[in-house]
Computed example of a mutant assay.
Amino acid sequence: MGVDRVFVTRRIPDEGLDLLRPVCAVDLWDDDLPPPADVLRERVRGAAGLLCLLTDPVDEALLDAAGPGLRVVSQMAVGVDNIELAACTRRGIPVGHTPGVLTETTADLAVALLLAAARRLPEAQAAVRAGEWTTWKPLWLAGRDVHGSTVGIVGLGRIGRAVARRLRGFGCRILYTGPRPVPEADEVGARFVELEELLRRSDFVTLHCPLTPQTRHLIDERALALMKPTAILVNTSRGAVVDPDALHRALASGRIAAAALDVTDPEPLPPDHPLLALPNCLVVPHIGSASVATRTRMAVMAAENLLAGLRGEPLRHCANPEVYRPPKHPPR
């Protein structure tokens, strides 16, 4: 029996690759940019495993190109909205992902963005570099207090709760919303409200929900109109949860005070995108999990999921666990 060939769609930390190389023939796309669609289809042809990133579309066309030998897909990310899970399940292909490991690191960034936008740090740094710091000025670059504020969290999952724990140290009142109340809310002192009430009452709104048909453009023209003119929006979830055109209009008109985004729609934003021209919009390039330790753990987890799938063992972190359930046969 030959050695299984696996395609890894990007340069990842060596700790993940080091787990694969002794037991697999690793075909690595050794670049920071994703492989073009035609290259991705060609390189996955005949592979037993695919280790991908959230920028790689894993759809019917790609699965057809891979052929029947593809036994496992493992994504180095928590979200899997780039993967057609139902198509993988129909073919009996388990899909791995990396939940939990990036919770604390992403929560750190969410709070960092919230603080940076509140205290207008990017504007202040730009002013210093432009030579505008002439003296101490009582009203210059005055921002918003985070301590004692009301923070609305949209999606009180692992990351949302981690953000709430951090903000309790600032004496913040925590509201949250989602499809339903969650029992863990009491642990972080968060109170459930409907989305409209959260938007109206919050000084800061931070997004931690998955991208689904229901949450796509959840923050649209109407939602932004409900927010306080002094409110600040933070997004570290998925870019398409926010309507970018509506956000630009709200920021440019002063409908809301500021936004801080780790994710955008589209992603990446082109350099001439109008959001990037606004002084009250802070944008960073999807670095929520970008600490050395966390990215290393993600690579190791993705490799371990891949190896389990190649061995025919259940994945420890599987995004489509229904793939392991026996098919239902109609009664005879």
Rank of each mutant, 00 (worst) to 15 (best):
L28Q: 03
L28A: 02
L28E: 06
L28T: 05
L28S: 01
W29P: 05
D30S: 04
D31L: 12
L33A: 15
L33E: 15
P35Q: 08
D38I: 11
D38E: 15
V39N: 00
E42K: 14
V44G: 06
V44F: 03
A47K: 11
C52D: 00
L54C: 05
T55L: 14
D56C: 10
D56F: 02
D56P: 12
D59I: 03
L62E: 08
A65T: 04
A66F: 03
A66H: 06
G67H: 07
P68G: 15
P68I: 12
G69S: 08
L70H: 00
R71D: 02
R71P: 01
V72T: 07
V73Q: 05
V73S: 00
S74D: 05
G79T: 04
V80Y: 15
D81A: 09
D81T: 00
N82S: 03
N82W: 01
I83M: 12
L85N: 04
R91D: 01
R91C: 02
I93E: 13
V95N: 07
G96E: 03
H97A: 00
P99D: 12
V101I: 09
L102C: 11
T105Y: 09
T105C: 09
T105N: 06
T106A: 10
T106N: 10
T106Y: 04
A107P: 00
V111S: 14
L113R: 10
L115C: 04
A118H: 12
R119L: 08
R119C: 09
L121F: 15
L121S: 07
P122G: 10
A126P: 09
A127M: 07
V128T: 13
V128C: 11
E132V: 11
T134E: 14
T134H: 14
W136C: 09
K137R: 15
W140Q: 14
W140I: 03
L141A: 01
V146D: 06
V146M: 04
H147K: 15
H147T: 15
I153A: 05
G155P: 02
L156R: 09
L156K: 09
G157C: 07
R158D: 11
R158Y: 00
I159G: 00
